[in-house]
Design a protein around this nucleic acid. Structure first.
Lengths: 141, 141
DNA sequence: AACGAGATCGGAATAATTCCGATTTAGGGG
DNA sequence: CCCCTAAATCGGAATTATTCCGATCTCGTT
């Protein structure tokens, strides 16, 4: 998705387009990876030095509500945010030593189907599936 | 697992058995559910009023390293701890409104097998799989 | 161009977790 | 059974991440 696609989608949803929001969106679309709130703040401040954490958090959760951003919760309580490249929903292999992660190409769909069967009363909105362990380099050392 | 089983396992692993550690273990074994660090602190303080957060956290991570405790990371950055009733590893349906959760009886095993195939170099040690949504009561209101 | 709802800023408040120095204690060795 | 030492605890302060809040500013409509 391009920046303009994302912005027009926000406009359609009745969201004001401020320079800060645009810049945050640019960061998220820049590299296809996840970011901490602080990383985003730093990047946005290169362009708008006065931006505050408050704005970053408010904007990220706004984007999340609008379905444009995904929030990831890693072991240790780390929260990260990434752009929701739709139909590209994915999970991660997270190395417990170096902290780097790889995306997985698949999703526990069978389980989700099974949940629908066994718990039809529960309205599923999202799920997380993260795998922890040690990557090649860290495993050997 | 009983309290004595857990304690003797700790002894075998060369861990000192202090009254605080025993009490924390009792809490974890009391109800089969997960706890916040604060809930554990409160419960332990009923017996040992001077116990500190430091002790609770240190002990929980000690138990985790020893394989007796599992740490759960919920959406919103909430960390919870529960006793690792072995061969009873499980996942949760978490309601985003009331925060209550139900245990699932199954696990994304297919996915884990697939990970072994596609990423044989990655040494998997654990995984998380949590499903978010709204339970019956909260869904309707 | 003016208006008003909603956004931003900056700093303070809150919450969760970790750190640290002083003191106490579990448990092995004599 | 007592002593000793490494390890554990306590209490409070420090740190970190996140949220709140009042004053000010601005997007987008009229």
């Amino acid at each position: 998705m391009t920046l303009n696609d994302a912005l027009s989608r926000l406009r359609t949803l009745g969201v004001k387009i401020t320079p800060q929001r645009q810049e945050i969106m640019k960061v998220l679309l820049g590299e296809e990876r996840y970011y901490s709130a602080e990383e985003i703040l730093k990047k946005v401040q290169e362009r708008y030095p006065a931006v505050s954490f408050d704005t970053v958090y408010r904007t990220l959760y706004l984007f999340k509500r609008m379905g444009l951003v995904i929030e990831l919760n890693f072991q240790g309580g780390y929260r990260r945010f990434e752009f929701n490249h739709e139909d590209k929903h994915h999970h991660h292999l997270v190395c417990l030593k170096c902290g780097k992660s790889k995306k997985l190409s698949f999703c526990p769909t069978d389980c989700l189907a099974r949940i629908k069967e066994e718990h039809p009363e529960f309205a599923v909105t999202s799920h997380s599936f993260e795998i922890y362990g040690y990557c090649r380099g860290c495993r050997d050392s």
